[in-house]
Structure formats: structure tokens, C-alpha cells
């Protein structure tokens, strides 16, 4: 099966997880590590960011949130963004322009995360939820249809955020995932230590084909599994020498160190020097 077909399948599953309520399954205790609104009428899993804010507001250390996110993060890292996240899928649908990654904006998503925690702590309110484009899409709009929501200032604010983010996605592929997503921000911390990841084998010529294929706009052969890699695997089939592969392996022993440029070409056995 082609990698992309497989990924479309898992992405479909991720979207379905958001609307599994149609099967009669009610809300569960599970966190799902993708940006989705648990206020969505059909959601069956809890949004980690929403839960984290509520736990912080209640003055509780969010152990459940951190533990679950660490488990998820150590399994796939940002692979969740590339393979399962429903809002990531929306990003993919609008990924028309694969432009280069603007590295200076990378910390923005961690600042969004920090701002979200700070707002929950200081202002005792779920400010991220009030601006979240996933909530706009899967809560505000459905509830308007159900007669629960009205067109009012918060609704218009939601629509404005959604519009701006959709526009951003159309102009820059994976715009939300690259720069703004707090969920991606926290998963990115686990990216290097996760089981799932890209491997760089022998034969990389540095031709740049993977860079042109990357929706995140990074340079995969130099930055495998770096915090901005969503492990979507788009680069894998693009490699003319098949030097890139993706799958499960132990962190630290699967390929060239992502944050450091190669000091030498990979050896014939596929493991670069220095590992």
C-alpha cells in the first residue's frame, strides 16, 4: 500500500474519532492528541488543550494531561499531527503552496501554549477555546445548526479566527501546524525521543527533492525528526535514491542526528558516523 494512501486512511480515522458520537458512543475519558473540540456534538474524546486549561483553572497540576501527552508523544511524536489530527487533515486539504519554513516563527506555537496556560492560570478562563479554529469548525458551526448558538460577538470572533487560519493554510501549507498549534507545540518536545520516526539511510545526495515535497517546508534530510517535522512521510517517496524511510525504531539509533548537520556522508551500512 502506498504510504500516502495509508496516511489518508489514518487521517480519516482521526476525523471519524471526532464524530464517533453518531455510533451512539458517548463521551469517553480518553484524550486524543489531535486538535479537536470536545464540545463538538459528536466528539467522543477529550481535547488535551481544553482539559489542561480546565485543570489549571481549578488549581490542579494536570498530571493526567501530561502523562497522556507524554505517552502519545513518546509513541508517535508529531506523527499524530501528520497521521491522525483532524485539524491537521483540514490543513492538508488546503496545502496548495509548499513554501519554506520560516524558522523565526517556530517558537510561536510554544508561546501560544504558554499564553494558553498563563491565561488559564491568571484569568481563570479558557481563552484558547474561545479563539480555537477547531472549535469554530466543529462546535460553533454545528451548534448554530442545532439552534444552541446564535450569531453574536463570540461566534463572529470564532469565524474570524477560522477565516484567518484557513486563509493562512491556503497561502502556506500546514500554516496552523507550523506556527500556531499548541498541541503540535507540546508534541514537538517529544519528537526526537519518539518511537515513530524517519530514518536516513545511505545514498542521500542532498538533491533537495524531499524539501520540495515537505508540507512543513523543512529540509528533511538535514532535519529528520526535528521539532518541526510532522513525520507525514511525504518526503519518503520523493527521494530519488530511496535514502529516506519511515517507521518504528528506537530513538537515537535510527539515523543522523536531526539537529546537527551531517559531518560526513552516511556510511555504507546506513548508520551515519557519530551515532
Amino acid at each position: 500500500m502506498r504510504l500516502r494512501t495509508l496516511r489518508r486512511g489514518t487521517q480519516g480515522l482521526g476525523v471519524l474519532l471526532g464524530v464517533f458520537g453518531i455510533t451512539g458512543i458517548g463521551m469517553t475519558h480518553l484524550l486524543f492528541p489531535g486538535l479537536h473540540c470536545y464540545a463538538c456534538p459528536l466528539a467522543i474524546t477529550v481535547c488535551p488543550i481544553g482539559l489542561m486549561q480546565n485543570l489549571v483553572i481549578s488549581g490542579t497540576l494536570p498530571f493526567y494531561f501530561l502523562g497522556a501527552i507524554a505517552v502519545y508523544g513518546l509513541a508517535l511524536g508529531r506523527g499524530w499531527c501528520g497521521w491522525f489530527c483532524p485539524f491537521g487533515t483540514v490543513n492538508d486539504l488546503l496545502a496548495f503552496r509548499k513554501v519554506r519554513f520560516l524558522r523565526a516563527l517556530s517558537p510561536l506555537k510554544l508561546l501560544v501554549l504558554g499564553g494558553t496556560v498563563l491565561a488559564a492560570w491568571r484569568l481563570a478562563d479558557t481563552w484558547f477555546c474561545k479563539l480555537c479554529p477547531a472549535a469554530s469548525l466543529t462546535a460553533s458551526l454545528p451548534y448554530l445548526g442545532l439552534g444552541v448558538a446564535q450569531v453574536n460577538t463570540p461566534f463572529l470572533l470564532h469565524m474570524a479566527t477560522l477565516g484567518a487560519v484557513l486563509l493562512g493554510m491556503a497561502l502556506v501549507s500546514r500554516f496552523w501546524c507550523r506556527y500556531l498549534c499548541p498541541m503540535g507545540g507540546i508534541l514537538s518536545l517529544f519528537n526526537r525521543a519518539s518511537l515513530f520516526g524517519l530514518r536516513l539511510g545511505a545514498g542521500c545526495t542532498g538533491c533537495g527533492a524531499c524539501t520540495r515535497a515537505c508540507p512543513m517546508g523543512i529540509v528533511p534530510h538535514r532535519e529528520i525528526n526535528s521539532s518541526d517535522c510532522i513525520k507525514c512521510g511525504e518526503c519518503v517517496p520523493s527521494c530519488p535514491t530511496r535514502a529516506l524511510s519511515i517507521g518504528f525504531s528506537l530513538p537515537g539509533v535510527r539515523g543522523r542526528d536531526p539537529l546537527r548537520p551531517a559531518r560526513a556522508r552516511p556510511g555504507a551500512h546506513g548508520v551515519p558516523p557519530g551515532q
Binding site: 458517548g26 463521551m27 469517553t28 475519558h29 484524550l31 473540540c37 470536545y38 464540545a39 466528539a43 477529550v46 481535547c47 481544553g50 482539559l51 480546565n54 485543570l55 481549578s58 490542579t60 494536570p62 498530571f63 493526567y64 494531561f65 501530561l66 502523562g67 497522556a68 507524554a70 505517552v71 479558557t126 477555546c129 474561545k130 479563539l131 480555537c132 472549535a135 462546535a139 460553533s140 451548534y143 444552541v148 448558538a149 446564535q150 453574536n152 463570540p154 461566534f155 470572533l157 470564532h158
Partner: peptide, 29 residues
């Protein structure tokens, strides 16, 4: 961390928070 969270009832708390919709909490109003 997950075990501590679950022992402290945060799993149930997550379910409680998610199974009710307070219209102002997610910015519906």
C-alpha cells in the same frame, strides 16, 4: 504521571468537563 492523574480522579474530571457544554466556556457566547 498518567497513573498519578488517574488516581487523583483527573480521568473522571476530564469526562465530566467534556460531557457537558456550558455555552460560554467554548465561546459559543
Amino acid at each position: 504521571s498518567l497513573a498519578v492523574g488517574l488516581l487523583r480522579g483527573q480521568g473522571v474530571q476530564a469526562w465530566r468537563i467534556a460531557s457537558s457544554l456550558c455555552t460560554s466556556c467554548v465561546g459559543i457566547e
